[in-house]
C-alpha cells in the first residue's frame, strides 16, 4: 500500500512538473543570470546599466505585431515600460504572449532619441496598432532605454 502511495505521489509530481513546463515557453538563448534587476532601477540610473547584461521580469504589455521582434515589458513601477528588442528573425514572439509574464535577458542600450526619431517611432507604432500618433506629445530629446534581447521565458 505504502509503495502504491509513493508511486502515486511521484506520478502526481511528474504531472505537475510537465504541466508547469508546458506553461513556460522559452525563446532564444538560455537565461544565464540568477539575479533579476528592477526596471525602475534601470530607469533611475541608466548610465550605470548601459552596456550591462541584465535579467528583467514583468508583464508583456505589447508585442511587435508585424514580425514578433520586440516585447514591451511593464515595469515594477506604474507608467513605465521597457522594450526588449531582438534581431529580426532571431526570435519571433507570437502575439499570444501579450498579457502574460516574461523573464528576459539581454544587454541594456541607452541612447538619446531626437524629436524626429521619437516621431518616426511613434508613427510606426501607431501604424502597426492602427491608431494615431499625436506629434505634440514629443516635446524634446529623450533618453531611450531598451534591452538588446537574447533570451526570454514566457509564463
Amino acid at each position: 500500500m505504502r509503495r502504491v502511495v509513493m508511486v502515486a505521489v511521484m506520478v502526481a509530481c511528474a504531472a505537475v512538473a510537465v504541466t508547469m513546463a508546458a506553461q513556460e515557453k522559452k525563446f532564444g538563448a538560455a537565461l544565464t543570470l540568477t539575479e533579476v534587476t528592477k526596471v525602475s532601477d534601470i530607469y533611475a540610473n541608466p548610465e550605470k546599466f548601459s552596456g550591462k547584461r541584465v535579467q528583467v521580469q514583468g508583464p508583456i504589455v505589447d508585442v511587435c505585431a508585424m514580425m514578433g521582434c520586440w516585447l514591451a515589458l511593464g515595469s515594477d513601477k506604474e507608467f513605465e515600460t521597457i522594450r526588449f528588442k531582438v534581431e529580426d528573425g532571431v526570435i519571433v514572439f507570437p502575439m499570444s504572449v501579450k498579457g502574460k509574464n516574461a523573464k528576459v535577458e539581454g544587454i541594456i542600450s541607452v541612447e538619446t532619441l531626437t524629436v524626429a526619431q521619437q516621431i518616426a517611432q511613434g508613427e510606426e507604432h501607431a501604424k502597426e496598432q492602427k491608431t494615431t500618433f499625436d506629434r505634440k506629445t514629443v516635446t524634446g530629446p529623450k533618453v531611450g532605454i531598451q534591452i538588446k534581447g537574447e533570451g526570454a521565458i514566457v509564463f
Partner: peptide
Amino acid sequence: TPLNAFRPDPDTLQLFFEGRT
C-alpha cells in the same frame, strides 16, 4: 480574471485576456 493589468500612463488602464486587450 485578467491575465494581467497595467497602467502605461495615469489615464490608461490595460486589461489583458487571452487574445483580447
